[in-house]
Simulated assay, not measured.
Amino acid sequence: MEQKINLMSHLVAGYPTDELAFTAAKALVDGGAAILEIQLPFSDPSADGPAIQGACNEVLKRGYRTKDGLAFIKRIHEAFPQVSIYLMSYGSLVYTPGIKNFCSRAASSGVNGMIIPDLPFDYDEGLTAACKENGMVNIPVAAPSMSPQRLEKLAGAGFPYVYAALRTGITGTDTRISEETISFIEKLRKGGSRIYGGFGISSGKQSAALSGHVEAVVAGSVFVRLITENASSEEALYQAVKNKALELTGCNK
Rank of each mutant, 00 (worst) to 15 (best):
Q3P: 03
S9H: 10
H10F: 15
Y15P: 10
L20S: 15
A21N: 01
L28P: 13
G31E: 08
A34K: 14
I35P: 02
I35N: 03
E37S: 12
F42I: 07
D44R: 04
P45A: 03
S46F: 11
S46C: 10
G49M: 08
C56N: 07
R65F: 07
R65Q: 14
K67R: 10
F72E: 08
R75D: 07
I76D: 01
E78F: 02
F80Y: 13
P81S: 06
S84A: 15
I85K: 07
V94I: 15
T96M: 09
T96I: 09
R105S: 09
A106I: 12
N112I: 10
M114H: 01
I115Q: 03
L119H: 02
L119M: 12
P120T: 05
P120I: 04
F121V: 02
D122P: 01
E125C: 13
G135M: 13
M136K: 06
N138Q: 07
P140I: 07
V141Q: 11
A143M: 13
S145P: 04
S145K: 01
P148A: 02
L151F: 04
R176G: 14
E186T: 00
K187S: 06
G191V: 01
G191K: 00
I195A: 04
Q206C: 08
A209L: 15
G212N: 12
H213K: 10
G220I: 14
V222S: 03
A231Q: 15
V241I: 14
K242H: 09
L246T: 10
L248E: 03
G250K: 10
C251G: 11
K253N: 14
